[in-house]
Computed example of a mutant assay.
Amino acid sequence: MECVFGLVGDGFALIAADTSAVHSILVHKQNEDKIMILDAHKLMGASGESGDRVQFTEYIQKNVHLYQFRNGIPLTTAATANFTRGELATALRKNPYFVNILLAGYDKETGPSLYFIDYIATLHKVDKGAFGYGSYFSLAMMDRHYHRGMSLEKAVDLVDKCIVEIRSRLVVAPPNFVIKIVDKDGAREYAWRETVKDAGAPLPSS
Rank of each mutant, 00 (worst) to 15 (best):
E2N: 15
E2M: 10
E2R: 08
G9N: 04
D10C: 02
F12S: 09
A13L: 09
L14D: 01
H23N: 13
S24T: 06
I25N: 09
L26R: 00
V27K: 09
H28G: 04
H28R: 10
N31S: 11
D33P: 01
D33N: 14
K34C: 02
I35W: 01
I37Q: 13
I37C: 03
M44L: 15
A46D: 07
G48E: 09
E49C: 01
S50H: 14
S50R: 10
G51N: 11
Q55T: 15
T57I: 04
E58F: 11
E58K: 14
Y59R: 11
Q61C: 07
V64F: 13
R70T: 05
N71Y: 12
G72A: 12
I73M: 01
I73C: 04
P74G: 07
L75W: 00
T77Q: 08
A78E: 15
A81I: 06
A81L: 08
N82D: 04
R85M: 15
E87K: 15
A91D: 13
K94G: 02
P96V: 13
P96H: 06
Y97H: 15
F98M: 02
V99P: 02
N100G: 00
L103G: 09
G105C: 06
G105M: 08
G105S: 07
Y106N: 08
E109F: 05
T110L: 03
T110Y: 12
G111I: 11
G111N: 12
S113M: 05
Y115A: 01
Y115L: 07
D118Y: 03
D118H: 04
T122Q: 15
K125H: 08
K125Y: 04
G129L: 11
F131G: 00
Y133C: 06
S135N: 03
S138L: 04
L139W: 03
A140N: 01
M141K: 05
D143Q: 03
Y146G: 03
H147L: 10
R148G: 11
R148V: 10
K154S: 15
A155F: 11
A155K: 05
L158I: 11
C162N: 07
V164M: 01
R167A: 12
S168R: 14
R169H: 01
V171N: 09
V172F: 10
P174L: 08
P175C: 03
F177S: 14
I179R: 05
V182L: 11
D183F: 05
D183C: 06
D183S: 03
D185G: 11
A187Y: 03
E189V: 10
Y190M: 13
Y190L: 15
A191C: 05
W192D: 14
R193T: 07
E194V: 10
E194P: 00
E194Q: 05
D198I: 01
L203C: 08
L203Q: 15
S205F: 10
S206M: 06
